[in-house]
């Protein structure tokens, strides 16, 4: 009985570990000249404060849809903002005509494909979706 309980606990811990493996990474096209970015540089690009990478090449950020877990994880780690803070941030910018939020593409695979073909693009996807067409530039 006790052994059984131990196994159940162990199993529960393992499944926790597996689900915790979902991890957001920031990627650019493998054709991009950008090799790494800091959290602050990435935040500035996604919050529309800069329009280029540190090497002066144009940066084209791609967002995942509102309410998606990966988006919430990305912004809480990179910009220290939850979804309401992010909506409030963009409300201020949109309604003063100063800018628009990044374009939306839904799903890790679709984002990866869009990024792979555009050396200016930058996005965030789950680590498990990374392949050779994209380069990880930040693990926040």
């Amino acid at each position: 009985m006790i052994i059984n309980l131990k196994f159940t606990l162990l199993f529960a811990l393992l499944s926790l570990a597996v689900s915790a493996q979902a991890e957001v990474v920031v990627v650019v096209s493998s054709k991009s000249s950008v090799t790494s970015l800091t959290t602050e540089q990435t935040a500035k690009i996604f919050l529309g404060k800069v329009v280029t990478f540190p090497n002066e090449h144009a940066a084209f950020p791609i967002d995942q849809p509102e309410g998606s877990a990966i988006r919430d994880e990305f912004y809480s780690k990179v910009a220290h903002k939850n979804s309401s803070q992010l909506t409030a941030y963009w409300a201020k910018i949109i309604f003063t005509g100063e800018g628009r939020p990044p374009q939306l593409i839904a799903g890790d695979v679709a984002v990866r494909k869009a990024i792979a073909s555009n050396p200016s693009a930058i996005g965030y996807i789950d680590k498990s979706a990374v392949n050779r067409s994209v380069r990880v530039v930040l693990k926040p």
């Binding site: 909506t87 409030a88 941030y89 409300a91 201020k92 309604f95 003063t96």
Partner: peptide, 9 residues
């Protein structure tokens, strides 16, 4: 500039 947008603050 966003005085009217209550949601923004």
């Amino acid at each position: 500039e966003s005085w009217d947008v209550g949601y923004s603050y």
